[in-house]
Amino acid sequence: MAELDHWHPVLFADELGKKPAPVRVCDRELVVFRASNGQATLGALADVCPHRGMRLSEGRVEGGRLVCPYHGWSFAPDGEGKSPATPAARPCADAFEVVERYGLIWIKRRGVDAAFPALDVSGYHFIGKTRHRAEAPLEVTLDNFIEVEHTPEVHALLGYPRERMAEVTCEVTSTERSVRVYNEGPQKALPRPLYSLLQIETGDSFVDDWTTWFSPVYTVYDQYWFDPATGQRRPNALRIAIFFVPVTAGQTDIFALSYALAAPWERYGLNAFAYLLTRAFVVMELRRDVTLLGKLADKSPELRGRTLSRFDKPLGLARKRIESIYRGRG
């Protein structure tokens, strides 16, 4: 399988209105549109008219069809085209499968039977969705998200304290399809009011337990706290799914869907307020990641020749699976 044989998020669903939207994914330029015939049908086509090469994203939607702004040729979501001036012509645009789920628009190539990324958020409560663009290749971007060694330097709230990094455990397990990393260590000191808001105590242990999958490339994080003396878990936990979408060879979009365990209606709405802050934290921490990634001197995904730490084991495991599962090589 090749990259576009897997489902990729390309847009927030609420960004796609009546107008067609251009998107770039895996170095392909596509146009996504919503039918205006009252149906919930979506279409995704190569963003170029097969007639004379116009950008279809400059066109308009009429009923269930996308109309080219140049000569008025129109295309159905399956690519079937009509030319008003040449009724006998049977033009065909390059069509992709498209679906709206979890508040995102997803696309993949037609005719391949890829599974939709598994994301069990039943019983979790949606906090928010974010998108950031890293000026780095897919592998190098993913690297940043599958080790915690960078958290004391890069992050304000997420992760572990610098002076106690040596205590942080890092257990890596893998299957043919996934790489799981379990980190456990002391929670970094936080501003005082956050403890009660997040329902945690000073001295709590923080667990960052994630699994990375490769069809498409995404990581689902379970983050929670417990009392190290009793092992008792704190009431809240976060589940964050991050999808890594190559835009070009050197750019990667990061779509994050964040969920909380604690229901917003609990604690008289205080949780709803905690959601707002959590969403802001996720945005802030992701911005720090992508800013840093943009400053890398060497963005080559090659790991050979580098000196690696005890936290870097997942990087090599992920490389192999990106090659075999995501890119379908070897």
Partner: peptide, 24 residues
């Protein structure tokens, strides 16, 4: 479960901490 764990506990034993609203 299609029902909320807080209102889906059997007599004498609430769901443990860390259980989502809809347990699997």
């Amino acid at each position: 479960l299609h029902t909320v764990q807080r209102f889906s506990a059997l007599p004498g034993m609430p769901w443990p901490p860390g259980t989502p609203t809809y347990p699997s």
